[in-house]
Nucleic acid binder design. Structure first.
Lengths: 370, 370
DNA sequence: AACTGGGCGGCAAGCGGTTGCCATGTGTTG
DNA sequence: CAACACATGGCAACCGCTTGCCGCCCAGTT
């Protein structure tokens, strides 16, 4: 409480020991110390052990900056995302972070804050200090990606860019599960609420849904585009015409959540009047009521694999197939989807039970698949 | 689509120009180039301009690593948080990031992933490369903080550690608003659902609530501790005895959200049977139903000011008062608080309207304050 | 006994900037 | 006109670590 600034740490932060200090103390040349740490085997085992001992005593730690200068190895990679506020990224970040940490790397997060300019600036600032980049921000244009790829190894997430390694979600399978689930519940006509036009993911999701529904004999139709946010979904809800479809598949969970709220605000009940499906299974999906049925993207694995892929490239991997790594999806059934109602405004009760049993059936379906 | 790896960028990533290249091209010494960039005024205006021109033509960019080695100025600061999944941090991160970017700094996020060990490891890895650290992770012990502070300038968030600059939330005022709001709604007895014991914030919140309620003549009582998560809150709901209090103030929004769900699961209605208040106003607060009434912490400002403070210190500020910078709070009234019900299990309707009018009254109260 | 080769340690030249100090040129002052 | 201050540019020594190359020494070969 009595914070007095007596002990000014002015000349402060004492210089930490260098390989020269260790070398002197151990009676060897600095180069030997260096090798003892970075080139195991190159130096005699006993000598190495002694050096390591001395170093430990002195509290020596290699200075990453100094190491990076001649080698370029900064042990940092950049992860570019379009907005930390987007729950979609939290598991991705976690996955990336664990994978990176396991390899002794640190990840610097470049947050575009939903702005192209900011993204470019921030990335530009970070680029020279990182060894490689993972682009998980959907907005970035292909040309911008290639620009970056020219300067540093790059892995893109949930997207496909020629000649740039990528890891993506198995959207086709996910949408297939979604369609099957809806078909099982008796739905015959579904609408897709599209996301941003620039989104590669959106195209993929729409296409996959179309194919899956076609195979299952469902009618599908695309509603206009929506910003990939809760607000966007809520706004889109205004455009929904009751009766046009009994089930709605949204671009992602955020949109789905907004959609549900928007529908509810209009007095349309979910799932009694219309079922709603999301995509991604971010943590918001289980936060809202009704809980959101959604296709779970392998968020964490996405992050992990992107990092691993990047590290492999940095490690000199040349065996790129040129084919994206695709990661499996599964369906998570919650309460936002239910048996299609015969008539609109059906007697209030009972429905939940029906959906309850449907849920069990579908869950096992989804569990069974990969 | 036809990703062929023909054009192996093997010898790849072309070496970028250095001050030596620029110097040669401009017909000056490297040192002059260096100064032209980092020491404006030290070199003749015309010369500087010419150099800058040449540099631009060559596409020269200063290499931050090389610059950092002799100077120690890496233009990076670390922001340590306990879990990116915690919505509490998203605005803090944003604030920190904008403030940092404005000063040309990049922030590297150190995510403890709720683990002491991971936090230490990650921080240790990042420490040598950053100029300063912002500790926003509640878990860290005082001694650990001092340890870090010995190595780098540190600013702590929402916490007070002797001799370490800090920026905190005005909890006292926030809790006062909360208490007033509840008093106005006719509540006479409130319970506080505590957070983790190690949390400085928890102590502060409890103390503030106690003082505020005392002044207003409300009875207050503390329920057991809960993990600062939704799950924690849900679990705590089981321990709540109906009738013991008509209003619950939770440690934070996460706990409050969990609490609400837990209560609802037990058939206790919020806000009809019991009102619930949160703290922080994270985005989850408006996501749940009923929307959570909560004390809004100045999240973004917290992040911004922490960075600004840190940068000031790095810039050589010595004028520390030793006093934490405290940032204002306000009350955000949503639907989780309502007029105290006369009896338990009152006739279902009407209540919302009552709470509706109360809401307006309180909102203006809260808006009026600071 | 002369020769070869592998193991191991040291030397020194970077990596790309920064900066203290000095040399020079020009303007100012006594 | 000498003395001096100041503006400006160059020299060279770092910052701390990596690494190519060299030399020494001690087997193992022939």
């Amino acid at each position: 409480m009595d914070a007095i600034n007596e002990d000014l740490p002015d000349e402060g932060w004492r210089r930490s020991p260098t390989i020269y200090d260790v070398a002197r103390a151990a009676g060897v040349a600095p180069s030997t110390v260096s090798r003892a740490f970075s080139r195991p085997g190159r130096v005699n085992a006993e000598t190495a052990e002694r050096i390591r001992q001395v170093a430990a005593d002195l509290g020596y730690r290699v200075n990453p900056l100094a190491r990076a200068l001649p080698t370029g190895r900064t042990s940092m990679i950049a992860l570019v995302i379009s907005d930390i506020g987007n729950p979609f990224y939290v598991e991705i970040i976690r996955g990336a972070q664990t994978a990176a940490a396991a390899a002794g790397y640190i990840v610097v997060l470049v947050d575009a804050q939903e702005s192209d300019r900011l993204e470019r600036e921030a990335l530009e600032r970070a680029l020279p200090t990182v060894e490689g980049v993972i682009l998980a921000s959907s907005r970035t244009s292909d040309s911008a990606i290639r620009m970056v790829a020219k300067q540093r190894p790059v892995v893109v997430l949930n997207r496909h860019v020629a000649d740039v390694p990528s890891v993506v979600t198995d959207t086709a399978h996910g949408m297939r599960l979604a369609a099957e689930h809806l078909a099982q519940l008796g739905h015959r006509s579904v609408s897709y609420l599209a996301g941003p036009e620039a989104s590669w993911t959106d195209g993929m999701r729409w296409r996959s849904l179309r194919e899956a529904t076609a195979e299952l004999g469902l009618k599908v139709h695309r509603m206009g585009r929506s910003a990939p946010t809760i607000a966007g979904g809520a706004q889109a809800a205004e455009g929904f015409e009751v009766g046009s479809a009994t089930a709605l598949v949204a671009y992602n969970d955020q949109v789905a959540v907004g959609l549900i709220r928007g529908l509810q605000a209009r007095g349309i009940r979910v799932p009694q009047d219309v079922s709603v499906l999301g995509f991604d299974n971010t943590f918001t999906a289980e936060l809202v009521s009704p809980g959101l049925t959604t296709v779970a993207a392998p968020l964490r694995a996405l992050g992990e694999n992107a990092v691993r892929g990047l590290l492999a490239i940095l490690g000199g991997a040349r065996d790129r197939t040129g084919r994206p790594l695709v990661l499996p999806t599964r369906l998570v059934v919650r309460a936002s989807t239910a048996q299609r109602s015969r008539k609109r405004t059906s007697p209030a009760s009972g429905t939940t039970n029906v959906s309850g049993s449907a849920r069990n059936a579908s869950t096992s379906t989804s569990e069974g698949s990969r």
